[in-house]
Amino acid sequence: MSFKTKMIPLAGAIAFAFAGSAAAQEMVVKIGHVGPVSGAIAHLGKDNENGAKMAIEELNAKGVMIGGKKVKFELQAEDDGGDPKQGTTVAQKLVDAKVNGVIGHLNSGTTIPASKIYNDAGIVQISPSATNPKYTQQGYKGAFRVVANDGQLGGTLGRYAVQINKAKKIAVIDDKTAYGEGVAAEFIKGAKAKGAEVVVQEHTTDKSTDFSAILTTIKAKNPDVIFFGGMDAVAGPMLRQMKALGITAKFMGGDGICTTDLVKLAGDGIGEGQVVCAEAGGVVDAQKKGMDDFKVAYKKKFGVEVQIYAPYVYDSVMVMVEAMKQANSAESAKYLPMLKKMKYKGVTGDIAFDDKGDIKDGTLTLFTYKAGKRELVQVVK
């Protein structure tokens, strides 16, 4: 046997050992994401999921180090269909998969029941879009949100209805979900505090398509403003039927209706400046460029416009990973303290949390629709 032939297996052994050592230095960190990527608001769920994908891909391209190890981030994306029962099922699936943190859910109605499962398992959860105050009022140490809650959002819209729209009589409709009922209740508080009268309050569901009976009742009361607590998939057909019935009242709603898709869903029912809605977030001045750049990058990557929440999902992933880096650990129990005292500049603005897990100084952006496009009215706190 020649000297050369002896060296081949030796070199192979060295290469194998080196590869094994390199692999040992790489750490896999799994981040779960949950949103409704099926059903009536799948376009919003996909928007959220895309925001998570952008963040994960960027982090992997950067080669993030945590505790001296190079990290490979993996996104485990799940579909809750906007259904609370399905939401808890996929939450348990993520717990069983031993994810290092969860971004989601989109709806308050799925986020709140799922949050108990994550809390019991000791897994950090950041919701990029659930606005019902109950989510962070449960006392769960690992529950956070990066958008303003319904108390801020609904109350601001209620005050706006009276102060700017000069509404004296208002009608309110909600879709009986945790989000819809919550934002409607806060709107009523805000409007009543400024002297408006609720002349009628009606209820529908998040799957309804026929509102003729409700709208006929409302038309008889001749309100100045109709507020809807629900999502764009229901608001669109409702606006079409309002137009068919000759109802010209202003139509207001929270972030659930405040999407680019509302134009398509409402058709000619969208009107000119008839719809006013609020997005739970917003940036001004110097921070505006970061958001604009994100939207350009998002469209280039996915070929569609941002709906609403993708930037907030992106920031949720980034702020979670920043906490991991500061803690030198991807374990929820170890990076949680860093998250609680986090001060992070994201594409959606400055992110810091209060003792409940709500974002501090949350902003709201008011929009209307003109010439078939969503148009910014103002950013408020």
Rank of each mutant, 00 (worst) to 15 (best):
E57S: 08
I170G: 07
S129K: 02
S316M: 12
L336I: 03
A213Y: 06
D361F: 00
S208L: 00
L239F: 01
K356P: 01
G372V: 13
P337Q: 03
V29P: 04
E26I: 12
L215S: 02
A22T: 12
S208N: 06
N119D: 14
F228L: 00
A266T: 02
T5P: 00
T204N: 05
K243G: 00
K295V: 09
T111Y: 02
F251M: 00
K30W: 07
I359Y: 07
T89N: 13
Y179K: 03
Y140H: 14
G229Q: 00
T209G: 13
A286E: 15
C258E: 00
E279P: 00
V275T: 07
D358T: 02
G282W: 11
E322K: 15
A161Y: 06
S108R: 06
I257P: 00
L44E: 07
Q274A: 05
Q201I: 07
A244S: 12
V37Q: 14
Q274N: 04
S38R: 06
A11W: 13
I308M: 12
I14Y: 13
K373A: 12
L366C: 06
E279N: 08
F353H: 11
A97R: 08
E375A: 11
K6P: 10
D261F: 04
L245I: 09
K141Q: 15
G109Y: 02
S108C: 05
N100P: 02
I173Y: 04
P133G: 05
I270F: 03
A333T: 11
K141L: 14
V200E: 08
K288V: 09
P237R: 06
A278M: 07
K6H: 13
K98W: 11
M238E: 00
K194Y: 11
V172Q: 08
M7E: 10
A371F: 06
A280V: 03
M27Q: 15
P36W: 03
A130S: 14
L94H: 13
P237V: 03
I103R: 05
G35S: 15
